[in-house]
Design a protein around this nucleic acid. Structure first.
Lengths: 215, 215
DNA sequence: TCGTTTCCTGACCGTATGGTCAAATCACAG
DNA sequence: CTGTGATTTGACCATACGGTCAGGAAACGA
């Protein structure tokens, strides 16, 4: 009896798996190296070593260093967008903004490298993701400003400038990733413990939510 | 009659002036280039072009790229330390912390390049200024934590974690320099006006001071 | 004016880097 | 097993970069 014909087109399952896995390994290594050395300081050789692959293999999957970098940055932006959705569907600022802070702090903890790559990209004038800033980010920002303004109009929070509130949310949460090394140094060269992370989250939420009159 | 002997040792006034001026021009150009390209992406040739000097002349004043970079980072740290003194001598959190926010926002506005270089340096693990983090910054931080704790004990503000408050102060104020390009893009590709800067300062101060119960 | 020190700079060098390529290997279908 | 196309990789190349150096120009003291 011949093997059952696969209905789902698994066909070249092995090859697909190889490609998926190698791209993942390369992207992980690239994210680290780009974060630790910047785009200019990163070398394909270093990324290759960290990925455990020959350099020429990287160029097989990603034609150029810049193409690899673009993929890394895009991945981060998608993660960021996922967290951004936390904002939606909340009835009041305490849950909406509080949940957003939680989500972004969690990203800072789980994706510190990605956050640093994003920060460096923006600091250098966003040469690669300028269009995202002008379209997706701008739209998202405008939408969230409307939501906040509505909360203000409904008397659910103090009349602050929604735009600057958003900047403060981004700044405070991403700081724990981008300046994680500084925080760690000031913590006696120790990474923040679970307890300290909870404390950080609580501090940020308390100060900001009380600051906007939502507590 | 021979010229009056200069009591003040002006002696080689011209040469001193040349050196001072050239170092200034080079450091200004270096700060810009390091901020816009990162240490790895910056080239001595680019810095030389921006300074309007031949590349070999840079190496006359600064032996290596790293030596030049160190000087840039140290300059920024000194500016930062100046602003940090604003904290001292304040009787209550509203003036102490409010003044500190004002000072740091002013730095973000006047030295955006320097702030970015500092941020990139820390993000990459502070390879050059790690000792500063462990000594000067740690001491300053501990001192300020004491001051804040005293204010809390005196009932002048809410009982928050002073350390995380400091992180929030750094994050929110430096964000306006480090992510200035993003802010500018979201502002319709326009730099913040005087009015908008005042609004930013006021927003940050209002939210944070109310957030810590000092208003 | 003259000797000395500092400053300036075009030409040059060794190395590291991003990227290419052709040959070998492997997965897969028939 | 065989043919085909995807994958792997060591060797290689052109370029760009940090840094050097020798020789000339300018500033300075006497």
């Amino acid at each position: 009896m011949p093997p059952l014909a696969q209905v789902t087109p698994i066909k070249t399952a092995r090859r697909t798996e190889i490609r998926r896995e190698n791209e993942r390994v390369i992207l992980d290594a690239a994210e680290r190296v780009f974060a630790e050395a910047g785009f200019g300081g990163a070398t394909m050789q270093l990324i290759a070593d960290m990925a455990g692959l020959p350099k020429a293999n990287l160029h097989y999957y990603f034609p150029t260093k810049e193409a690899l970098y673009r993929r890394v940055v895009q991945n981060i932006f998608e993660i960021w967008l996922d967290a951004a959705s936390t904002f939606d569907g909340a009835e009041d600022p305490a849950t909406g903004i509080g949940g957003y802070i939680d989500a972004k702090m969690e990203i800072s903890r789980r994706h510190p490298h990605g956050s640093k790559v994003w920060a460096a990209e923006v600091m250098q004038g966003a040469p690669v993701i300028q269009d995202y800033l002008e379209t997706t980010l701008k739209d998202w920002t405008d939408g969230r400003i409307s939501v906040i303004q509505r909360w203000i109009d409904q008397g659910k929070m103090a009349p602050i400038n929604p735009r600057h509130l958003l900047y403060m949310l981004w700044a405070t949460t991403q700081h724990y990733a981008d300046f994680g090394h500084q925080i760690e140094t000031l913590n006696g060269a120790q990474p923040l413990s679970d307890r300290q992370w909870r404390d950080a989250k609580a501090s940020v939420k308390t100060i900001l939510l009380r600051g906007i009159g939502a507590l």
